[in-house]
């Protein structure tokens, strides 16, 4: 009888602790979502420093799982230069680059593919005609229990008025 009681106690204890762990993980997910809010401002940095480029309000961060694919659509305006970069927490990327592809939202033409550009982490361009761009981002995949992790990814967009060259 005492052995049965002990067995029941151990099984029940394990069950209760697993509920607690799940609840805490749920709370952590909510905290992480809030934590991700400014992630792109704190963590994403463009490799070149240029004071003329300013933060663009279409930047954002969000919570993701490994291997997740997501799309961002933003507007680039004629007469502006843009820089964009992705960054992610190590728990998601494990040091691997975040792949991204830029397409014309209307024509679907691929304008840039980081996979075809030595896994570039960032991209800079001048816009000569306003348009909506779609950026498809793919996070490195994970295996086993790592599939259940999650972390922040930031999309930092900076912009400046294009420099005018030549005599007018």
């Amino acid at each position: 009888m005492s052995r049965i009681l002990m067995l029941i106690t151990i099984i029940f204890a394990g069950y209760i602790f697993s509920i607690q762990a799940k609840a805490q993980k749920g709370s952590t997910a909510i905290e992480k979502t809030v934590y991700c809010t400014d992630y792109h401002k704190k963590a994403c940095k463009f490799s070149k420093k240029d004071l003329e480029f300013k933060y663009n309000s279409q930047s954002r961060s969000a919570l993701f799982r490994p291997g997740q694919v997501s799309e961002f659509s933003f507007t680039s305006f004629k007469g502006y230069d843009y820089r964009l970069t992705f960054c992610g927490e190590d728990v998601l990327t494990k040091g691997a680059p975040i792949a991204f592809k830029i397409t014309d939202a209307k024509t679907k033409a691929v304008l840039f593919d980081s996979n075809a550009s030595d896994n570039a982490k960032e991209f800079e361009f001048s816009c000569d005609n306003s348009l909506n761009l779609r950026v498809e981002m793919t996070l490195p995949a994970a295996e086993g229990s790592e599939k259940n992790t999650y972390g922040c990814v930031g999309f930092l967009l900076q912009s400046r008025k294009s420099l005018q060259t030549g005599f007018k």
């Binding site: 749920g26 997910a29 909510i30």
Partner: peptide, 18 residues
């Protein structure tokens, strides 16, 4: 429901300038 998956980001974001 407050579970992990509802906090995980959706497939598409549509940004609008401020």
């Amino acid at each position: 429901s407050v579970v992990n998956d509802t906090n995980i980001s959706p497939e598409a974001f549509f940004q609008v300038p401020l």
